[in-house]
Amino acid sequence: MNQLEKEEYLREYALLKAKGKPFFPYAIAKDSAMAVITLIVIILMSLILGAELGPKADPTTTTYVPRPEWYFFFLFEVLRIIKPPEFVPMATIGVPTLCMILLFLLPFYDRSAERRPERRPIATAAGILTIFAMAYLTFLGANAGSPNEIDMAPPADLKGAALTEWNQGRLVVAQSGCLACHQIGENGNHGPGPRLTHIARNLPAAAIAQTLRNPTAPMPSFQRLSDTEPEKFNAMVQFLGSLK
């Protein structure tokens, strides 16, 4: 906006404002009605949906799938879509940070004087597109099963019971939250734990089992799993032991 446009706007605005009504009681009446609706909605949601409390936090659990609040689903989905490890920080931090910077600076790069949405086609289209993209990502994030899936084909030479065990191990590892800290193939987070894609090259299966039972913090111990459900534990070890 140049000086002329600014002055024109201020003049136009002063005229519209002079024709307007006082905030009290006219605008405040609408605001209060809206406040009452807001309160009613919150109360109804509380009464209908309640406030469930899940099982107590247990740092040693091995089968919990983390899910964020629904309005973070889109972020979650971005994380699922972008798999290559060198892009993960970009997806989780880079994209949101960039979006926030773009949002902060909006008034400084969109400087035209026009305000009607239909005469600002780029801004309006970008806004609508953003809304649809967020809605779509939220929808995908909401319907995604476990974020912890390991997309990996079994080694070709596995057959029969060994193959079943391998698949079970893959499932248990995927559901045990390992991917929150480790990367396996294309899945999982970059850190803080080391990458497990080729873990069996350095560690024999027995050493892997040892680490699972007796890990260094913050990794949870799988001792309990190995006591209560040894077949699951052994499947995990078998699966991890196949990662050459």
Binding site: A57, Y64, P66, P68, E69, T92
Partner: peptide, 29 residues
């Protein structure tokens, strides 16, 4: 607000979601 409040009930869901959230934070430059 939403992110920090989510942990407070300290049930499974809030605990694990927050662990992942904080780890994601940590990958930032």
């Amino acid at each position: 607000m939403s992110f920090t409040g989510y942990l407070l009930p300290f049930d499974q869901r809030s605990y694990w979601a927050t662990i992942v959230g904080v780890n994601i934070n940590g990958t930032g430059p």
